[in-house]
């Protein structure tokens, strides 16, 4: 019997990364901007998508991949807005993986401009999985508290944009928008920050404009 030590140096999430890069390559080639939305359960991802769908007027087309543990409820809400939605049911898993998105891929029409991926509500696990997105947005709702960025560093350091939601509740809560913004920027100085209220409709236009300019940048890069 011989014992042998071998040097491997292989990434444990290497296979996910590889699939994600392939997805990103295919989507960007088609000129589709893919946006991965991360947040705790109930931060308002689906409601935000409903508001975005109202602001994003033709000729722009969007589609949504919905990640949930159970039920098609979120996908039905999106479809009710006339937006195509594809549901991924993880059956208990706390995050989406690139191979799950890969299975939906053949159903995605090539003429989309925006593909939103609504991840499973969870600020921890989804942060470790690249899904092939171009932009990663993390949502923080005001009832969650302004101290969340540093408690969930991975989500905030890997995001491109922070969307504070339910800003209309600030007068009722001990939530300091500036403090949460500053905390998040200490973790990630490059974050684009948006302050929104889906109920009042504030901040949605600025966010949509940011997505539109990101789409233009992407298309210039891959033209």
């Amino acid at each position: 019997m011989v014992k042998k030590e071998i040097l491997v140096l292989e990434e444990l999430l290497g296979s996910n990364k590889k699939i994600a890069s392939e997805i990103r390559k295919k989507l960007t080639k088609k000129g589709i901007l893919t946006i991965n939305l991360l947040s705790s359960p109930g931060a308002g991802k689906t409601t935000l998508l409903e508001r975005i769908s109202e602001k994003l007027k033709p000729p722009y087309k969007m589609g949504v991949i919905e990640g949930d543990i159970e039920t098609e409820r979120d996908a039905e809400r999106i479809r009710a807005k006339g937006i195509p939605a594809w549901q991924i049911l993880t059956g208990g898993a706390c995050h989406l993986e690139a191979k799950m998105v890969g299975k939906i891929f053949p159903k995605i029409p090539a003429n989309l401009d925006f593909l939103f991926i609504e991840n499973v509500g969870n600020l921890v696990c989804p942060a470790s999985y690249d899904l092939g997105e171009t932009l990663r947005c993390v949502l923080l709702s005001t009832p969650e508290g302004d101290d969340k960025p540093k408690k969930y560093p991975k989500a905030f350091t890997t995001a491109d944009c922070l969307i504070i939601t339910k800003a209309d509740l600030v007068p009722l809560l001990p939530f300091d928008i500036e403090r949460s913004k500053e905390e998040a920027l200490e973790l990630n100085p490059e974050l684009e920050v948006f302050i929104t209220s889906a109920l009042k409709g504030t901040g949605i236009e600025e966010l949509v404009n940011f997505f539109l300019s990101s789409l233009q940048t992407l298309r210039k890069q891959y033209a």
């Binding site: 011989v2 042998k4 491997v8 140096l9 470790s128």
Partner: peptide, 10 residues
Amino acid sequence: LLLEKMELEI
């Protein structure tokens, strides 16, 4: 998040 080394019995 890496697998650095492994030891095998051959």
